[in-house]
Design a protein around this nucleic acid. Structure first.
Lengths: 198, 198
DNA sequence: GTTCTATTTAAACGACCGGTCGGTATAATA
DNA sequence: TATTATACCGACCGGTCGTTTAAATAGAAC
């Protein structure tokens, strides 16, 4: 890798980091290319040298963040003995991810042309993520740790539970308080908020 | 109420309905004034006759939807014997609300000037809503129906739980399936997903 | 030292943004 | 019937949007 090429990759990294933060705070349309470039400290033309469009940049971000997400999560999972432990790990990891494209995603879905190549790729990424999550929830059902509910529905509920916590916690508390909240929330998710024993 | 005045109110209603749908689908910046006018079938000038700015329109929407939300919810609550029943009512009602400003809200917070009058009003509305919810959760803790957790945290968790379900369920299933999902989710929230008895 | 090519910049594009304004139509009033 | 207030229209403003382009820069290869 030549020095020139390395600097290029470095710039790309600056752009993706800035874009991630701005998309998550301002939403898909709210975060402008100019915003992102200013934050990354590069020119607009430079951004368009590295990415062919705004849609493309967004999908690239999705791809990268999900990949990183599962790389780290699989590592954490490998040292868990039970699926319940995995759920705690999932929760803790959700809390530690400080930036989420969560609300920008919906905007993206409803704004961008459904037939575009970017949208096709986007949908594949989201579907794949759901399936990976469902797989680990199914383990929990199969070995009797979780209740025998419809796996798809249960996955849906659990995923949205943590996504929402992340969404709200982000702009209300710091990272440490967030982790505590996620731990409590996970316990409640497991055992319920009801005081009675079933 | 004169005929002329009535027609005005009617138009305002058309605008708020269109705006509600577009803000919830496309986000705050994603939904343009022109979009909203086209959907409402009125001119831009007319919209700006009824609302003094886009921010103002958004906050008005928040105000209206929270007011309607609690008007209906208080009615449902009045026929509940336990707070647990109230929680189910809360869930069922969350499922029936087909449009939510949920993700546009965050964008609004991070986009709009923090000192603006619109933002001040917005924050008051959101805070008031949180307090009303917390009050009913506190009832559940006080009478021993819910676990004795920190009320603020518990409220936080429960609110984001239903908000997220609403957010995701919206573009994945129809209204009936949604209600079923919310009922199941409420049961899981109460008793947990764990198969073991504590 | 010259050439080549990957990276970067600044300027420019047309489309669209939120918002304004002069003007019009019509129901209510006097 | 003349006047007024309300409801509404659509052209237009300055500015910003996503995107394109031509030219500048600087490491790599000869």
């Amino acid at each position: 890798m030549s020095k020139r090429r390395f600097e290029g990759e470095q710039t790309k990294l600056l752009i993706t980091n800035s874009a991630m933060g701005l998309f998550s705070r301002k939403g898909y349309s709210g975060a402008s290319i100019q915003d992102i470039c200013s934050a990354a400290g590069c020119s607009k033309g430079n951004l368009y040298y590295h990415f062919k469009s705004k849609e493309d940049l967004f999908v690239y971000l999705e791809e990268q963040s999900y990949a990183e997400w599962w790389r780290e999560l699989d590592r954490l999972f490998s040292s868990c003995r039970t699926v319940t432990e995995k759920l705690y790990a999932y929760g803790q990891f959700s809390a530690s991810i400080e930036r989420s494209l969560y609300s920008a995603e919906r905007e993206f879905i409803n704004t961008v042309d459904a037939d575009s190549e970017a949208m096709q790729r986007f949908k594949e990424i989201v579907t794949k993520n759901f399936e990976k999550t469902q797989k680990f929830i199914c383990e929990g059902i199969a070995d009797g740790e979780f209740k025998n509910e419809d796996p798809s529905e249960l996955t849906f509920i659990i995923m949205s539970f943590f996504a929402a916590l992340n969404h709200y916690a982000l702009y209300l508390m710091d990272n440490e308080a967030g982790k505590d909240l996620f731990r409590k929330a996970t316990t409640l998710l497991l055992h319920g908020i009801s005081a009675g024993n079933e």
